[in-house]
Design a protein around this nucleic acid. Structure first.
Lengths: 315, 315
DNA sequence: GCGGATCACTAAATCGAATAAGTGCAGTCT
DNA sequence: AGACTGCACTTATTCGATTTAGTGATCCGC
């Protein structure tokens, strides 16, 4: 029952040509001249036998496999933006005959092991887009987009009349690998406020438990009574602010408006329901796929991904 | 600057032996007799040059790479149990000189592509433990544990005096790939209740929006007034039940107790805070790693992983 | 002191694909 | 007619590891 893998040799025998010819046909080598009839025969034989190229052999010969690794420090808590990003990246890579695999547990030594074991075409980093041998700036517009999207979040607060805003971060998660992302977000928030000639944000750092959150928030509102709205790092953080506010009797959005980031699904079910920013990361994903493989980016593609405020009750 | 990869040949030259000898030494081939001095020389040379075996070459020769794929249908929403499971699986595989990579986007054709491209040692499925060529029942005690853990969840409700319980499922997620897991959980719940000579559970299926949830819950409590507690598929589902109950003015846990599954972190911050089941999945992960690679399972290892009720306010 | 076993290795084949370097043949140019 | 070019392929090498089948040297028994 276990029919062994079909190799190029099998295809060549079936088509009555040499193995090299099969390779030329199947890879559409433009430098080689193969007659249309032979091409057809080879292709048919390959299809009939169900030939699938062996990735290991290919990787050995070419020096690099057709695998792209996405490095994620910790298990992500499903924001829809992240999911869509991964989906799109994956789909586009698949179209380009590559495959996306995700690696948890970052670490520099890990990347070395990874490189040796799978010779990936590139290693991307969710947090910091990692350097690949092919594309120096394999960014795909991510950070650029991050700035734009942070602007959408902050601007919503300003446009709804808030003059002094805060930025909420979870301490534990920041330590666990979101440090860089958090720093970027805070930086962009500062810049947006500067551009709008608004005062800089105060930082609200949550703790490890619900009690910590309450204490932090209580202290925060007391220390900064002029702050009437907070933008959170993500929806989970925002939901924690909501919970703490509810426990403290702080009215949301009356006394304090709260806005999340990267709609995570659960926000809709909170009370008050969470206003957040929904990001169309699919375009990013597709673009990053091409950039990563060193392909030209379709200039007609919509470059600046859309981010819209999902306006619910909390802001 | 870009010093090319160190190969076995390089090591053999440095150690003054043949390439075959290097392979024998580095892989500790028991059938071969190599003198201690030579072994030492080879090892030193390899260490000095920083030799790392090429995974592609190895995979080509051996027919299978040292990569294990964990197939996850959709982006998971970080339960701590899942995270710990993945961490432990990963760590143990690393100890055994293998590597865990995660693949989103399941699908049978995908597995074929995957097999061809990376020749993984095994493909595991978060939902259903997938068959690998080596281990027929590469289960690692997962389903067995799932039964035990579901029992812990249900028993908590029964022990706190509830005579008729419900089981809450999200419709959308069930469709999106948790179908099998959900079916297993419901099945185990039924069995536990049967064993306890309690009535079978009624199913509460949530919808797509907060409004749907409210309607579903309102109908559920009206139809089944005797149900005083619900066990949820996971924490996210439980939090949605909590939100709907709060909106409907249904007292939790007074009128309806709610218990989650696989402590997801956010439950602590809800009001009322979510009672849930915390699972020690690390032992599973380690065990599964060994089973997957066809290694004997350490009999001294604690087999039945512990699951404890994290008792908070909702049940 | 000579056949055979054991030791400590080495040479070479192998995995499957990509590709550089040929090869034979038809047609073209001069 | 002979050299040359282009076409349609094939042969053979390569990637880096594992592994089988040797190969000389030493040791053992009788």
């Amino acid at each position: 029952m276990r029919s062994k893998r079909v190799t190029m040799k099998d295809v060549s025998v079936a088509a009555g040509v040499s193995q090299a010819t099969v390779s030329f046909v199947l890879n559409d080598k433009p430098t080689e001249t193969i007659s249309p009839e032979t091409r057809e025969r080879v292709r048919r034989a390959a299809a009939e036998l169900g030939y699938v190229p062996n990735g290991s052999a290919r990787a050995l010969r070419e020096g690099t496999s057709r695998i792209v690794i996405l490095n994620v420090a910790r298990l992500p808590h499903g924001g829809t933006g992240l999911a869509a990003f991964i989906d799109a990246l994956d789909a586009e890579l698949e179209r380009l005959d590559h495959m996306l695999l995700v690696r948890y547990r970052a670490g520099s030594d890990d990347i070395e092991r990874l490189t040796a074991m799978v010779s990936p075409r590139a290693v991307l980093d969710l947090d910091r887009i990692y350097d690949s041998p092919d594309a120096e700036q394999a960014d795909g517009g991510w950070t650029e987009g991050l700035a734009a999207h942070t602007a959408v979040q902050i601007r919503h607060l300003v446009e709804t009349g808030h003059e002094q805003v805060g930025f909420a971060l979870p301490r534990s998660r920041v330590a666990a690998g979101l440090a860089r992302l958090a720093a970027l977000r805070v930086g962009y928030a500062r810049r947006v406020l500067e551009d709008l000639r608004m005062p800089q944000p105060h930082t609200l750092t949550l703790g490890a438990t619900a009690d910590d959150d309450r204490r932090s928030l209580a202290e925060f509102v007391e220390r900064h009574p002029q702050v009437t709205a907070v933008a959170a790092l993500d929806d989970e953080t925002a939901l924690r602010v909501l919970a703490a506010a509810s426990a403290l009797g702080i009215e949301v959005p009356g006394r304090l408006a709260v806005i999340g980031f990267d709609d995570a699904g659960l926000g809709e079910f909170a009370t008050p329901s969470l206003t957040t920013v929904r990001i169309d990361t699919a375009a990013f994903g597709r673009r990053l796929a091409r950039v990563t493989l060193g392909l030209p980016v379709d200039p007609a593609a919509p470059t600046p991904a859309a981010a819209v405020v999902v306006r619910r009750d909390s802001a």
